[in-house]
Design a protein around this nucleic acid. Sequence first.
RNA 1: GCCGGAAUGGCGGAAUUGGUAUACGCGCACGACUCAAAAUCGUGUUCCUUUUAGGAUUGAGGGUUCGAUUCCCUCUUCCGGCACCA
Length: 816
Amino acid sequence: MSRYNPKEIEPKWQAAWAKSGISEAKDFDPKREKYVMLTEFPYPSGSGMHIGHMREYTLGDIMARQKRMLGYNVLFPMGYDAFGLPAENYAIKNHISPQQATEEAVANFQNQLESMGFSFDWSRSFKTTDPDYYKWTQWLFLRFFKAGLAYQAEIAVNWCPFCKTGLSNEEVINGRHERCDTVVTKKLIKQWMLRITDYADRLIKGLDTLDYPSRIADQQISWIGKSQGAEIKFAIVDQKDLSISVFTTRPDTLYGATFMVLAPEHPLVEQITTKEMKAEVKNYIESSATKSELERQSSEKNKSGVFTGAYAYNPATKEKIPIWIGEYILMGYGTGAIMAVPAHDERDFEFAKEHHLKIKYVVKPAKGELRDDLPFINEGVVTNSSPKYDALPSSTVREKIVTDLTKSGQAKERVNYRLHDWIFSRQRYWGEPIPIIHCPKHGAVAVKDEDLPVLLPEVENYEPSSNGESPLAAIKEWVNTSCPICGLPSRRETDTMPNWAGSSWYYLRYFDPHNSSAFADPAKLKYWGSVDLYLGGMEHTTLHLLYSRFWHEFLFDQGLVPTPEPYLARRGQGIVLAADGTKMSKSKGNVVDPKEVIDSGYGADALRLAITFLAPYDQTTPWSPEALGGTYRFLQRFWTLVDQYLDSKAAATKDDTELKKLINRVGKQVSQDLEQMSFNTAIAAMMEGLNGLYKLKAADHFKSKDWQWALETFTKLLSPFAPHLCEEIWQRLGNKQLIQLEQWPGYEERWLKQESVSIAVQINGKLRGELNLAIGKSQDEVVASALADPKIQAHLTGKELKRVIYIPDKLLSLVV
RNA sequence: GCCGGAAUGGCGGAAUUGGUAUACGCGCACGACUCAAAAUCGUGUUCCUUUUAGGAUUGAGGGUUCGAUUCCCUCUUCCGGCACCA
């Protein structure tokens, strides 16, 4: 007798796997098909990982291990996204350097990951903070710069007053910075931008070629926010050289445009405002400038505004229409100005009511009456416009009107995106320095490729300053340099890249992590191609996942990568909530630490099974500590069964078709479930299988000679899920080679045939009986057996049989 | 408001070309072992009733069908995303 003791066997096998190198992928392996699988690139934070993080890696590891057994050359790498705010803020809080904070956090993460027994290819691991790596991040940035896709612009950016840095739109969630939850303000600073909007259409179209769940694709599409419309020019009265362009999706309502509204930040506001209105307008602009995005949104229904005193000509009616300023117009969308059509837009309608402006209906419903107390926002029939357009459907007029106005240069078709260019500068220390030198003569100049990397200097003071400059600006000997073109004294760019930079291309580096002459060898890029399966959290859908696709598409256009998209399939795992159904968080003290679970005696295998068995992988679900007891018991029961088998002195004599059937059934279920990533039911199938094995043991006391085969096969099936226990049992059953090198057993169809089957009998749709019959009976035979059954007879007496429906070997439905 | 997803026992969940609802696990109850407890093993466990049986039941209501957790319509609630987007 021996006891299942995970504390003893788990470290032993972890060491054995590391020594054997079985998890390492082989470049250019001609014998096996390659399979690249990625789990998210974690940023090492001081608090370590909780079991929610482990869900993703556990699922990945199960798949990687099974794929290896199926004969694939699996690349399953891991590394650390170590630049960025989490590490830096943690360092500041604990008064240590970001370098030290990162080192400690990585060591902790490494320890946690290793204790779970994940089969990562550690030989390919790296951190984004390694100069060998960020050299290439800088090099890739310069490809964007040289292609004109990285540019500087002075714009009002989202500014986090706590982190003292500008942010991208994607990093602002509900008006707050996603990292620290501080309310974001606006600040006008010169920023580096990446022209992601050039790829907006590609990012949408590319989704058609990818296997992403619809919730991810839909989210990306709605984030990009494509809308088709027109840009229309409005001339300003008494200001010959000035005009205001607006974007509209409803040019068919142009005749109903009775006023215009500009965003308070619109550049033309100052020029067009009349003397009389100057003071009032200035007031309004100042009051809206002090509001944060969050405050502006909270006054949603309030349609505040002020008249500029100026007028524009409606290009269709030639009427003079007043130009207003209103907070509800956003500078960041379209042109920051609108033609207001109060009769056909709810917001314009409210604004018109509030400020007593003219409302003119120019579209009426095809059927029914117009109501003059409501805006009519649907499609309909054009009216009250011009004889050319009246009585035509609004959808037809939409195109006609643009075509007509285009001839006179007053309009053009335009596609507008909600997506903005990516604000790429951070005024922080802990990031890749942007490899640009500002020369008084040549402006922004790229650092020469051979001078990369631009090393991040070590500093005394890395805390952010509030003047909108990175701490790097204070290091004179680093900042002051000479122009790479003319040699004139010049200044280095002092902003750094966002933490999303290094993660935008990291998967490519796994293909060739130690290359010092290129970001990756083209031959290796070609061999590994794309990521076959990428597991990750839903929260990255419009951040990392979108950014990263953009980088890859750009690199493809540059001829630097052979594939148009980085990730062929994406799956998002659900969040593991705390047992009380709330989110795990350090402040609530409800975080479950995997290390504690392992050390408490349950071990990594039971934890891996518990996380996986909890619910379908993509479902958000609360953690249940009791589930751990269940999966531990299951493993222990398997251990005990094997132990009893090894102790038994039974002479193995007879064949046992029951064992064959049982194990093949489990093999089929587990194989199919893994293919569909239905991990929880795969485990259920194995639990059922173990229950079955116990029943058969009770019957024959290991007398069948198939027991060795049955236990070995079961061990193989369980090994991706509980690798340590299975490795140990595999060896105890007398095998020398690691189980990870075995072939996936699958199943043989011939053992799955059944000789008899239970057939349900329904009468008028209600279950009335069950027949145990040999397989393959004809309808007449089954009906005859049913009629002979006394229970069924009882329900049929005095009734006439009207109809018989027979589903072979399954069900008989009688209608009386 | 718009776009996605979901709702099944005390709990997590299972069931897809429409065919025996509640697999598997947890919890609970009873029993065995034990001086006792834990652990382990065994049995039972959707609800109701007049319990050799009958009836109800997959968020609510309706429809299609011999038959609906599954398909269609209406509604409720919850989760995720977007949101004054012109």
